[in-house]
Amino acid sequence: MITGGLDLGAGVIKGVLLEDGRRLLATASAPSRGIPVQAARHVLDTLGETANIAPDDIDYLCTTGFGRYAIPERNLQVSDFTSSARGAVFLFPKTRLVVDVGTQASRTMSISETGKVLKFKMNEKCAAGAGRFVERCSKYLQVPLEEMGPKALASERPKLISSVCAVLAETEIINNVAEGVPLADILMGVFLSLSQRAHSLMRYVGIQPEVTLVGGLVRNVGMVKALHDTIGMDLNVAPDAYYAAALGSAVLGHARLQKLTTAPQGVGG
């Protein structure tokens, strides 16, 4: 049985193919550019090519994320929290706290052994857009996105940004630049400030090990270090955690499919 998981985020569409709910066959992503349906089709095609599978061979498709209702051929849709939690547990079975520092919102949830969401919290207004903020800083400071993390690691005295408004925080960065603060310190300051906000969300739902980082910024070494330093605890980090929500929705899709095939009379059309 092959299940597909699609995470239709506001910025990026991510997808995975999962065999028998256990084996990860393929991952793919594409920018959504505000037209999620088209990008999602593209991601599905790429997944099929990678895994060498025809579109019809996908037995069940589960969507999540901001655009989860946009794909008509989906079999099921679940919220991002629910899917990210399952994805984190798939990657790290002992996960009890999931942190997602995403493009437009940061969120965190405490979960049970089975991956059920117990408590969750997402950032309020004026503290939003962690990933987007990093993107803007990249543009502003003229440092390519993928270099921001490695460059930040050189920081000795990180310059924290106090403003809760993402736009005013930019003004602060401009001022820091003008005052001659070293680039590495500004960059690490950005990551630490974001980590602190994520930390207060985590404290709200209650911090307990293991903590798994998922979502957009999981590949950024600067962000990972900053989070680690802020919470003073080891974090589970895996490259595939970038796909956690898609993965989790495929896992949930598989579970649902199994239920349906063992109890066929329950399938309603």
Binding site: A127, V164, H199, S200, R203, Y204
Partner: peptide, 11 residues
């Protein structure tokens, strides 16, 4: 303040 926010006191 951050500690109070983690207790649930809003922004």
């Amino acid at each position: 303040i951050l500690h109070a926010e983690s207790l649930g006191y809003g922004l």
